[in-house]
Simulated assay, not measured.
Amino acid sequence: MDLILWRHAEAEAGMPDLERALTAKGHKQARRMGEWLASQLPESCRILVSPALRTLQTAEALGRRFKLHAELAPGAEAEDVLKAANWPASKETVLIVGHQPTLGQTAALLLTGEEQDWEMRKAAAWWFSQREPGDPSSIYLKAVMAHDLVVK
């Protein structure tokens, strides 16, 4: 199984938190990363998105259908992300569009077996793969991509 964690792009400050929109810079970040992801993801990829406006706007830049998933809202736990993705049992690639610190904690849990506060840049994507189903030691980090590394 492949699991991609994509942090939302730059958003406006303010409250209420779920209504924060992307800034102009955030839209550009999302568009660049969305183009890269669209060129890499299989057609059968399942895309799950936090219900926050900024994650919805980030996911829209991908140009594919996605499903809002309430369990991915700000404040979610790393285990919530893995459960939503059906990790590691899913037969398809799953893309999660979510928030910090949850995505960084999920990345740490996948690679070390412990939740740690790892930083994930805005609009960055971390791509995990598991070589052998059911074997936690076969998980590896396949790619890390930042919006500013995407070549036009």
Rank of each mutant, 00 (worst) to 15 (best):
P101K: 07
E114W: 09
R31K: 13
A21G: 02
G104A: 03
R64E: 11
A78Q: 11
V81A: 11
R20E: 05
L82A: 05
E115P: 07
Q116W: 05
S44V: 12
L68K: 15
K25L: 11
L41G: 06
G75S: 13
A85P: 04
A30Y: 02
E114N: 14
L56V: 15
N86Q: 13
G34C: 07
H27R: 14
R64V: 14
G14L: 07
W36A: 11
A70K: 15
R65W: 02
A11K: 06
K83A: 14
S44K: 14
Q100M: 11
L111G: 06
A24G: 07
A78F: 10
Q116M: 10
I96P: 03
Q105D: 00
N86V: 10
G75R: 10
L82E: 07
L72F: 11
R64D: 08
T106R: 04
H69A: 14
L109P: 08
A59I: 13
L18P: 00
R31A: 10
E19I: 00
A21F: 01
P42F: 14
Q29N: 03
L48H: 07
Q105Y: 03
R46P: 06
P101I: 02
A76H: 03
A107G: 13
A85H: 04
H27M: 09
P88H: 09
Q105C: 05
Q29C: 03
L95M: 02
A107E: 03
K28A: 08
L56F: 02
Q29R: 05
L68D: 01
V49Q: 04
A61P: 13
L110H: 08
V97Q: 00
A108F: 01
E10P: 04
V94H: 01
A59E: 10
K67G: 03
L37M: 12
L68W: 00
R54F: 00
R54H: 07
P51E: 05
R31G: 03
A24Q: 09
L56T: 09
Q116P: 01
G34L: 04
L56E: 11
S39V: 07
E12T: 02
E43K: 14
E60N: 15
G98N: 05
L53S: 00
H69C: 15
P16T: 06
Q105R: 15
